[in-house]
């Protein structure tokens, strides 16, 4: 008996066919060792042959960012019991959660800081998520993170606590596991074990902890370098300055033992590097990529090795932020300044 057309293509519940790129649902497109996100060498922003830099382009995940990896891992193990999933997010986790939750039929609400670009808020609403904007100063219990405070209140208030459940990416071990099981092995495989340096930003700290732990287990000599904003008030959505943070507000999943160095970067350097990346390599990435890459390029001047730099997302979600940078650039050009 011959196969039905549905069986030939890949029906509901079937595994992914990465070779032919046929999937039984959108979630199967999330990257993993058999379906890695691309690793792209930088040739013009980093001419050094001694210290090669490869960007790991997480925008190639189906929902557009590194957070796609953790969204499914966190949701698949969550007993929602008909409750709404609620999470604080500077956008990428929210978008990923909304997409995965939509595919699973779960309602989603996202608490988002006001300073996040409008593009991300529009995307969340487009996806049907309920979006609540929160001032950073909203909650004295979370002094610079009103969105976290708001979710904390929804989960803790007698009136609302039975209606909500939160994956809590800051404390959820699945955030680490997603990177330990996918991003780390991908990098090791893609570099054929040749990676010497790994650069990633600090936010929830899931990426640096999961990938760092995996790579250190393969080769303890690999340098794991974390990047944080130089100021707690910054324009790098998704990144967090942990230096000076009291233990109470530190992401619980952070494992400092896998980090060799924590280096800081200014907004200006981050945005300038993102522009340089776009104009010299044709890679349109978000400002956090610029932040992480800026630090990696500093290393390129003096070190040797093969570096992998996480590029969390693309430029398109930050068009309004980049517009401000471009306007400032135009103004400088009119005044004849570089």
């Amino acid at each position: 008996m011959g196969q039905s057309n549905q069986d030939r293509v890949g029906g509901k519940g079937k595994g992914p066919d990465h070779k032919l790129k046929v999937y039984s649902d959108i979630i199967q497109l999330i990257a993993g060792p058999d379906n890695p996100t691309p690793l792209v060498r930088l040739n013009r922003v980093n001419p050094s042959e001694d210290f090669q830099i490869y960007l790991k382009l997480e925008r190639y995940n189906p929902f557009g960012s590194v957070k796609d990896r953790i969204a499914y891992e966190m949701l698949k193990g969550l007993e929602t019991g008909g409750r709404t999933v609620v999470e604080p997010s500077s956008g990428n986790t929210g978008i990923a959660l909304a997409c995965v939750a939509n595919a699973m039929g779960i309602p989603v609400e996202i608490a988002i800081p006001k300073m996040v670009p409008e593009e991300k808020k529009v995307m969340l609403r487009f996806l049907g998520a309920k979006v609540t904007e929160a001032d950073d100063e909203l909650c004295p219990l979370f002094p610079t993170e009103g969105a976290r405070g708001l979710v904390n209140a929804l989960i803790g208030s007698p009136k609302t606590r039975d209606s909500y459940v939160s994956p809590n990416q800051y404390e959820n071990e699945m955030n680490v596991q997603a990177h330990y099981r996918s991003t780390g092995p991908e990098i090791w495989k893609q570099t054929r074990g040749g990676v010497t340096h790994f650069f990633a930003g600090l936010g929830t700290c899931g990426t640096i902890t999961g990938v760092g732990r995996y790579l250190k287990e393969q080769n303890p000599q690999i340098k794991v370098i974390a990047i944080e904003p130089s100021s707690p008030k910054h324009r790098l959505p998704g990144m967090k300055r942990i230096t000076g943070l009291s233990e109470e507000f530190m992401p619980k999943i952070l494992d400092r033992s896998v980090i060799d160095e924590i280096l800081e970067v200014s907004d200006e350097d981050a945005y300038d590097t993102a522009l340089e990346l776009a104009r010299k390599e044709g890679i349109a990435a978000g400002p956090t990529t610029g932040a992480i890459l800026h630090v990696a390029l500093r290393h390129a001047g003096s070190g040797t090795g093969l570096a992998v730099v996480i590029s969390p997302d693309d430029a398109f979600k930050y068009a309004s932020f980049y517009q401000e940078v471009l306007q400032a650039e135009s103004a400088r050009a009119r005044k004849g300044k570089p």
Binding site: G149, L150, P158, T160
Partner: peptide
């Protein structure tokens, strides 16, 4: 009375 901060503050 059934809401804790900052939800109470927002409302």
């Amino acid at each position: 009375t059934d809401l804790i901060c900052p939800l109470s503050k927002m409302k």
